[in-house]
Design a protein around this nucleic acid. Structure first.
Lengths: 150, 150
DNA sequence: ACCATTTAGCTAGTACACTAATCATATGGG
DNA sequence: CCCATATGATTAGTGTACTAGCTAAATGGT
């Protein structure tokens, strides 16, 4: 029983068996698929996600965007300043609560949306998977996220 | 037909429908699950992945580790220096080819392996998913990785 | 009304992760 | 043999992403 045990111990730590490794590489690679589409509007992928959050609702506070994206406000703070410099959002203190920032889409930020509509289908096509498969993957990932938050 | 179309356009860009977003959050969260286990040996998750690569084979060159982990050598260079400072690897020029570095596990690096064997099962347990489910997730992720590499 | 506590956002410090540029060493064709 | 080319690793620069610590503004209990 010596060899089967050593084999099992190799399985446990082998790179190809690690879900965490597959997740990390898949996430990096898929983000990379967006790069050619996000280069013209000069967006990084995290910045693109912020735009998605703002297209759903604008204005939003830093905390609200952070909750929507599962990011720390400290991560968003400099990112939002860059989005302001590019010209897609406006940052101004809320009138009601001076602690909060209202992050508001500019005209340029809002009009980017119609162009962005073509991006997800093109990325999906290059993934060589059917729509139901992608939906089931997304669903499993949401379960992973839920489990890792509890 | 106006309203269904607007609804579809909202679906396309809604955060909850984005596989890329689910992937990014799942990857970050799962890496976070390793943190308590990696804190005692003073490893970050990327450093832990390098250790996995070296437990499979040591010594290895920077390029070989980069290929195994789908990372750029430029990313690994400072990371490997930190692993050397902690004391888990040794970095020395290859005798055969002076351009290459031999990254070799130290005694401390090798002996860490037996402790590490307990980590993946404990992380898997906190994910609240069955082993077949995790395997199928891993398999789908490998397909995503393959598709995004071509 | 006042002060302790909480909350919102920011800064500093560390560590990835990428691209582009650099430098040294190998290699291969004439 | 020599030089153009290729390869391995590093550095510089940008942009996340985290924790810890900070300041300012709001809130709530007495």
């Amino acid at each position: 029983m010596q060899e089967p045990e050593r084999a099992a111990s190799e399985d446990i730590l082998s790179l190809e068996n690690q879900v965490c490794f597959a997740l990390a590489v898949a996430a990096r690679n898929v983000v990379g698929l967006y790069r050619p589409f996000l280069e013209p509007p000069r967006l990084t992928h995290p910045q693109y996600l912020v735009m998605l959050a703002l297209w759903e609702q604008s204005p939003r506070s830093v905390r609200e965007i952070a909750d929507a994206l599962s990011l720390e406000p400290a991560t968003l703070s400099p990112l939002l300043k860059r989005l302001e410099i590019i010209g897609y959002v406006q940052r101004e203190r809320s009138a009601r609560d001076e602690r909060m920032l209202d992050i508001t889409l500019t005209e340029a930020g809002y009009s980017l949306r119609s162009t962005a509509l073509t991006i997800p289908p093109r990325v999906a096509r290059s993934l060589d998977m059917s729509v139901p498969e992608l939906e089931s993957l997304r669903e499993v990932l949401h379960r992973v996220i839920a489990a890792s938050n509890s």
